[in-house]
């Protein structure tokens, strides 16, 4: 089902530093256009990671919507609105930044402690044993399509209405 071994390992080696350095770059780069491209790197790495975890439909949706639409829109907004005002932000390191950095580090350490304390493999074995009985007749994308048109039909339609209203609202706000 998955990719062959060397490609899998190469992607894993490439993905971790890409995600970490890209995440730092989005926040810490002073020029906004560089941080927008760094966000694009992060989104592409996340899409490759979805391919590694056997979720090809979500990987395609991530690549199309996030990289193709949202990131391009953000880069367009940066190019449209930024003059030369980012040079004034260079030497602003206030107390609030330090406090926020401390709080976010504490939050990250708490999350890591919780992750390492939980016994995930007990949960995996209890749920895997129920699933072995069912046969793998249809692929993942077909499974998602069946769920979207039966169980999640009402949320699917509501999402489409929300998207339509958001697009109309965005046009109405932007062209006044």
């Amino acid at each position: 089902m998955g990719l062959p071994g060397p490609i899998h390992d190469f992607l894993l080696v490439f993905l971790g530093p890409g995600l970490i350095l890209g995440g730092i770059g989005v926040v810490l780069l002073t020029n906004t256009i560089y941080s927008a491209f760094s966000l694009g790197l992060v989104l592409v790495c996340i899409s490759l990671f979805y391919i590694l975890s056997n979720s090809h439909l979500v990987a395609a949706a991530q690549l199309l919507i996030y990289v193709g639409a949202i990131n391009v829109l953000i880069i367009f907004a940066v190019m449209f609105m930024n003059g030369s005002e980012y040079y004034k932000d260079l030497n602003l390191w206030t107390v609030g930044d330090g406090v926020t950095l401390l709080i976010c580090t504490i939050l990250f350490c708490l999350l890591m402690a919780t992750i390492s304390d939980t016994s995930w493999y007990g949960i995996i074995w209890t749920t895997r044993s129920n699933q072995i009985i069912e046969q793998d007749l249809i692929s993942n994308s077909q499974q998602i399509g069946i769920h979207l048109s039966t169980d999640f039909f009402l949320p699917f339609e509501l999402i489409s209405i929300i998207l339509l209203a958001a697009l109309i609202g965005a046009i109405a706000v932007a062209r006044q």
Binding site: S55, L57, V58, A61, Q62, I65, Y66, A69, I70, L73, I74, F76, A77, F80, M81, N140, I144, H147, L148, F152, P155, I159, I162, L163, A166, L167, G169, A170, I171, V173, A174
Partner: peptide, 23 residues
């Protein structure tokens, strides 16, 4: 996966509204 597709759709709506308000 289905919930992540819903989250992606909501993020698309947010990314359409946000730059419009900012502009």
């Amino acid at each position: 996966n289905i919930f992540s597709i819903f989250v992606i759709a909501i993020a698309a709506a947010e990314a359409a509204i946000g730059p419009a308000i900012v502009s």
